[in-house]
Design a protein around this nucleic acid. Structure first.
Length: 856
RNA sequence: GGGCGCGUAGCUCAGUUGGUUAGAGCGCUGCCCUUACAAGGCAGAUGUCGGGGGUUCGAGUCCCUCCGCGCCCA
């Protein structure tokens, strides 16, 4: 239902200046986008909004993808849904941590007790001050709150129809509580577990990282040919390795079981060069006969294949790399010879790079390096945020099962992917290939500080050694807790860290372990607060997860995992994937490449509607070039909408009993019904771009042709009845077009709406195709505009003004079209300034135009 | 190596299930101060639809193959 017509107030000079601030204030005051908590699940459309990382800077990518979601949200709201559209800020994690360290000059030491009222010095000190984790988190929150303000301002200016009363941050108390609660439930059901195992490790951040955070980078490397010795002078074996620095960690050689060159050697031993350690020769299918000399050395651990060999061949662990990425001070027990120990002393404490140079030197001295060192480039695994290659070290870590080690679970999660509706559809392949390729469970513990703590303590035995097998868990009513300051039930604070006492788990959870719960956080899952009782059931499973396609393997997948475990459900029915912004050279825009455009300047220059127009012109999922040209077009469209509306509304109202008596008006409205049908179907398929394109094309034609065709009649040139028909058609089409444009141009449409209607266009009902459809002959409109176009063309070709008079015009066309022309004759003659219009039967439309002579 | 997407006018892109002479905007050219709009309007020109082969009465659209670009996975 549309609001009742009222007195019109059309400005003399319509303008977009200041509309953003003005309407944002009205929408906030009126609660236009406030979620109606009385609505039941079928009446709700809920969105699991991506929380942007606020410690990064604003860029156009934010504007782009969030506008796509907002267009859908506005459409659903106009369809009568109570739209649940919260906003979250992702402030949890490494980027914030690094900023806080530099900004305040502090570092986190989780072993320290909380110091109430701690204030950092006004100037960051040269020597960083060590503070407790809760104090550190307080500073993180202080810094992120200003960043969050900037994001909110931007999103408000952009016109996102978010319910700003539903804001959360991924480090806030509620998020920590939800995150810990979900973890403890995973633990109780056996979906979370801890294990001491070889782990991919970033030596700079000094934390474990998960498979989802890896990326391969092509790196220079070099093959070194090393000589291993068979016993009793039986000869040497050459192996090629890119990591000679790990020679001291060598535990075996492996070759392929079918490789006849090495079959006789399986089960025998060799001694390593330099260090003189005896190691076995074993067979394994992962050994590649075509790589190097066909036989490889296994070290603990050079890469993930080493881990597989170590595990499947039951080899000993002989680690030499510490958490700081340096060679350990003391040698593995297996090195016993004097020369071996001396050699190890020469690499102890060195970085991997330095150690490699030292080992090469040792090999050269002993003559156990054969031939030249051959430079190659090869893919090396990095933490996506890291600068040095990952090492593999054995550590105790927490995991959540994700199907990487369990075919049954993997299949269940693949089935979830098939159950989910993807927009665009082909994005589901990303999910499938990722899940199919998982090679281990999800490692969620991080050896960092600014994050949600693992809510676990351990008893210490009489020697002060932690008993990991029997973790102490808090009662859920205590959540959130920080085990570095909170004390487990049955203990007192004095028992922390002493034999017979307890210790807190020092780790935090991976940021994705919290982000994977945005549906639960955003929906106030299991929160006891009266005000939110029953809310979760009204929004879950959500209708939509919008996000960028590059985080399908992290955010989307991990969210599916959590909901699968805790709700036995998909977290949402649909997901819409946005593309990236590319700079004009087709490169992904990113901060590190220095080609980021700040969005606020764009919003100021072109206006929010114009920037939204550019964003929503991009097809779902398609990477899109940054194009200010499109923003100029969007601005022109918004201004055109103001002007066309001003014209329409300045004609005066049609009157309550106006009838669409004229065939041209009926034909235009019939086409409008077609448009509504197309736009609705497009939105229902999440193709906002199509809805915009069709609406825009209709609108320009409407302005160029229909308005020109009926202008005179609407002013009253043909009498009251025909004028009322034109005005009624104009009012219907204006109202409809405003609604169709509202999801894209919320400010311009609201501005016009306010000239003649009460309430907000954004809470008005989406137009109804059936109500506009009367079965009129659309072709009347086509014939009339074709003839008008021919008249204009004749004038243009004669270099005359479009106002110039046509003395006579003869239209030839099939009889059916001539009959249609007759129905629009007066409008065509008036708008074309045609004195005499005749017709003749012909196969196709043709015109002969005689212009009036120029006035003397 | 496997998978997905893309390749259409100088540029950015639409082209639903195959159906007349392939579209839009920008840019370009020309005209017009027309009672909504000159930071505008009207009109015009512009294409071996990446190459080749096939199916069909008919292919930008379906099939095969090759080339180029991007991404995902291993």
């Amino acid at each position: 239902m549309s609001a009742a017509p009222r007195q019109r107030q059309v400005p003399d000079k319509p303008s977009l200046d200041g509309v953003e601030a003005r309407w944002d204030r009205v929408w906030t005051d009126e609660g236009t986008y406030t979620f109606d908590r009385t609505k039941t699940r079928p009446e709700v459309y809920s969105i699991d909004t991506p929380p942007p990382t606020v410690s990064g800077s604003l860029h156009v990518g934010h504007v782009f993808s969030y506008t796509h979601t907002d267009a859908v949200a506005r459409y659903q709201r106009m369809r009568g849904k109570a739209v649940y559209y919260p906003m979250g800020w992702d402030d949890n994690g490494l980027p914030t941590e690094r900023r806080v360290q530099n900004y305040f000059g502090v570092r986190c030491d989780p072993s320290l007790p909380y110091e109430p009222g701690f204030e950092p010095p006004p100037e960051p000190p040269k020597q960083q001050i060590s503070i407790s984790r809760p104090n550190f988190i307080e500073l993180c929150e202080r810094l992120t709150s200003t960043d969050e303000k900037a994001f909110e301002d931007l999103f408000r200016r952009l016109g996102l129809s978010v319910d700003w009363s539903l804001v959360y941050a991924t480090i806030d108390e509620r998020s920590r509580r939800v995150s810990q609660r979900a973890f403890l439930r995973n633990l109780a059901r056996g979906e979370a577990y801890q294990q001491e195992a070889p782990t991919l490790w970033d030596v700079d951040f000094r934390t474990a990282v998960a498979q989802a955070e890896l990326e391969d980078r092509e790196q220079p490397g070099a093959y070194h040919k090393l000589v291993f010795h068979r016993p009793a002078g039986a000869g040497d074996i050459e192996i090629d390795t890119t990591r000679p620095e790990l020679l001291a960690a060598c535990v075996a050689l492996v070759a392929h079981p079918q490789d006849t060159r090495f079959q006789p050697l399986f089960g025998t031993t060799v001694t390593t060069p330099v260090f003189g350690v005896e190691v076995p020769i074993r067979a394994h299918e992962l050994a590649d006969p075509d790589k190097g000399t066909g036989i490889a050395m296994v070290c603990t651990f050079g890469d993930l294949t080493d881990v597989t060999w170590w595990r499947e061949l039951n080899l000993p662990a002989r680690s030499i790399i510490g958490w700081d990425g340096r060679i350990l001070a003391s040698p593995p027990e297996a090195i016993t010879s004097e020369s071996g120990l001396e050699a190890f002393a020469r690499i102890a404490g060195k970085t991997v790079k330095q150690a490699q140079a030292a080992v090469v030197e040792l090999l050269q001295e002993s003559g156990e390096l054969r031939g030249e060192i051959r430079a190659i480039t090869h893919p090396v695994k990095f933490f996506e945020k890291g600068d040095r290659p990952l090492e593999i070290v054995a550590t105790r870590q927490w995991y959540i099962r994700n199907g990487g080690r369990d075919p049954v679970l993997r299949e269940a999660l693949l089935a979830r992917g098939r159950e989910l509706r993807w927009h665009p559809e082909y994005m589901r392949h990303r999910y499938e290939s990722w899940v199919a390729g998982l090679n281990g469970d999800w490692l969620i513990s991080r050896q960092r500080f600014f994050g949600v703590p693992i809510p676990i303590w351990y008893r210490l035995d009489d020697e002060g050694v932690a008993i990991y097998d029997e973790p102490l868990v808090p009662d859920q009513s205590r959540l959130p807790i920080d085990p570095s300051t909170d004390v487990p039930d049955g203990f007192d604070a004095a028992q922390r860290g002493v034999p017979g006492g307890f210790m807190g788990d020092p780790d935090i959870m991976d940021t994705w372990a919290t982000s994977s719960l945005t549906p639960q956080i955003g929906g106030y899952w299991q929160e006891s607060d009266e005000a939110v009782a029953g809310l979760y059931e009204r929004v879950f499973p959500y209708d939509l997860r919008p996000q960028a396609h590059d985080i399908i393997r992290t955010w989307l997948f991990s969210t599916v995992v959590r909901a699968h475990f805790d709700d036995d459900s998909l977290p949402w029915t649909d997901t819409a994937l946005s593309g990236w912004i590319l700079d004009p050279d087709r490169k992904k825009m990113s901060k590190s490449k220095g080609n980021v455009v700040t969005p606020l300047a764009l919003l100021e220059q072109y206006g929010s509607d114009a920037v939204r127009y550019w964003s929503t012109s991009a097809r779902p999922g398609v990477d899109t070039a940054f194009d200010e040209g499109q923003m100029k077009i969007g601005r022109r469209l918004a201004i055109k909408l103001l002007n066309a509306s001003k014209f329409t509304l300045s004609l005066g109202p049609a009157g309550g009993d106006a009838v669409l008596s004229e065939p041209v008006d009926q034909a235009m409205v019939e086409r409008l019904a077609d448009l509504v049908g197309e736009a609705t179907a497009a939105f229902d398929a999440y193709d906002y771009a199509r809805a915009l394109e069709r609406t825009e094309a209709f609108f320009w034609d409407f302005c160029d042709n229909y308005l020109e065709l009926v202008k005179g009649r609407a002013y009253g040139s043909q009498g009251d009845g025909p004028a009322a028909s034109a005005r009624a058609a104009l009012e219907q089409s204006l109202e409809t077009l405003l609604k169709l444009f509202a999801p894209f141009l919320p400010f311009a449409t609201e501005e016009v709406w306010s000239w003649w209607r009460d309430g907000s266009v954004h809470t008005s009902r989406w137009p109804d195709e059936a109500a506009l459809r009367h079965g009129a002959d659309r072709e009347v409109y086509r014939v009339a505009t074709d003839v008008l176009g021919a008249a204009r063309r004749a004038k243009t070709e004669a270099r005359k003004s479009l106002r110039a008079a046509i003395e006579s015009m003869v239209v030839s066309a099939p009889s059916a079209d001539l009959a249609r022309l007759a129905l629009a004759r007066t409008d065509v003659m008036e708008s074309g300034n045609i004195s005499s219009l005749d017709s003749a039967i012909g196969d196709e439309l043709g015109t002969v135009v005689t212009l009036a002579p120029d006035p003397a």
